[in-house]
Nucleic acid binder design. Structure first.
Lengths: 248, 248
DNA sequence: CGTCTAATTGAAGCATCTCAACATGCGTGG
DNA sequence: CCACGCATGTTGAGATGCTTCAATTAGACG
């Protein structure tokens, strides 16, 4: 554990602060968490099904997905995470994980001991509330994915995925205009949406021909945001990216 | 708000206690929450998309689902809740809800003001941790559903749904032997799994003919638990119903 | 250059859907 | 107590969105 250098917690803090204020003390406590940094290559496993990780993993840079494999060989990607995400906060409560977490691109994570997180949460309960809030937002994202996979056509499903991804990347300051990195392959996009690679390819072709998006070499550009959102039935409210919680 | 009668919190407390111990003080605080009871008929809306509920809803009896409707008229059910569930704990953080919560059968809920929950969480932080834990388990359930809808055949998908439902009902003490109430219609089961009513019907017929389950008049019996679990690829570990959290 | 991964396209098959008809059961009003 | 209506379940037949298999192209990288 590196207890001398500060934790590069800026992406996490930025994310938590979109959810509500954090005291200077809490922020300082986050920066001073003991931690180890781990660099992981592209398409490597971070945590494996049935692991009982002794640490909490904070995503600093890169991109990871949760996935499982079914007996017939199919793979389902269940969520995607960009920097600032805490990958296994559930391991504060659950001992095992029931899925695999793996990288899409070269990725950097920080490992933080359960004990240190627990101490921080006791000293700064507001951090726990922000992290719980984040858990709730991820649950909302998961529900949207379920709706895509269950009830939307391949076109709408892919359009929704792209819309959500771009909005999240923009909120994380990782989008230039209408262009951002897009770290998935067509095969991985299919695994996220319950589609075959072939069908993803054909459907993307139509979206491209309709002038909505282009996608080359891991870089994606949206040319017609409103058109894309419309066929996606996309509304970013569930991502809770702006408004301070109003209450009736 | 009824501040005189005790909140019938037994199902909630039983559920939270499967996750870890609660102090007698915390339990007493739960029983003494000010609340209002609301009885709701079958197939009624409890909370509607874009509502900003002023209360937290605790499910005391009955059964509810979260769902949304897509522009093409499809409906996706994203989760199902049995007594003991807190239906909108996310409204402690998020002002609006992005889906509809509706009853499957006649249902009783308790309404508790945000302020009273917040006070309780400040006085008994362990209750917050248990509820957060529960949020994480619901997220795990949601990931399993996504896997079913995205990558499993209709047979496996329905078998998985039934397996999970029966295990959850049993854990809640609402199962007699291999028989329990099954509050969904075939159409609703289809909406949960992204299938048409017709296909649910045909698939159920095959499961019945294979001697796995019978289902009549809202009552379901599993005749071959191992066979059902096998085609479902079902393992109940993600429901976290037994073991106290071991740690490496 | 040769090798590997990812993208692309064609063709055929099938799991699941849609449309449509009919059966069953249950609550309600006459 | 019967008749009707409505929700739910059941079955048939035809249509289709998506899959699978297979082959080819294009880029990236040592």
């Amino acid at each position: 554990m590196n207890v001398n250098k500060l934790l590069p917690a800026a992406p996490l803090i930025a994310k938590l602060e979109t959810l509500g204020p954090l005291s200077a003390d809490a922020i300082s406590a986050l920066f001073n968490l003991p931690h180890a940094i781990r660099e992981i290559g592209r398409h490597k496993v971070v945590l494996q099904e049935s692991d009982q990780p002794a640490n909490i993993y904070l995503l600093l840079d890169g991109c990871v997905v949760r996935s499982t494999v079914t007996p017939n060989g199919g793979r389902q990607i269940m969520s995607l995470h960009i920097p600032g995400a805490v990958l296994n906060i559930q391991n504060l409560f659950l001992s095992r994980i029931d899925h695999t977490i793996s990288t899409l691109v070269p990725t950097t994570v920080a490992l933080i001991a359960h004990r240190d997180i627990q101490n921080l949460l006791e000293a700064h309960p507001v951090v726990g509330l922000r992290l719980w809030h984040q858990t709730c937002i991820e649950a909302a994202i998961s529900r949207k994915w379920l709706t895509s996979v269950g009830r939307r056509s391949a076109h709408a499903s892919i359009a929704h995925f792209i819309s959500e991804f771009v909005v999240r990347m923009r909120a994380a300051g990782r989008c230039e205009g209408n262009t951002c990195d897009f770290p998935l392959t067509q095969s991985e996009l299919g695994d996220a949406l319950g589609l075959s690679t072939v069908h993803v390819n054909r459907t993307m072709k139509k979206l491209r021909e309709a002038g909505l998006v282009t996608w080359h070499h891991q870089s994606l550009t949206v040319h017609n945001w409103e058109g894309l959102n419309k066929i996606a039935d996309f509304d970013d409210a569930y991502l809770e990216l702006r408004q301070p919680a109003a209450r009736d």
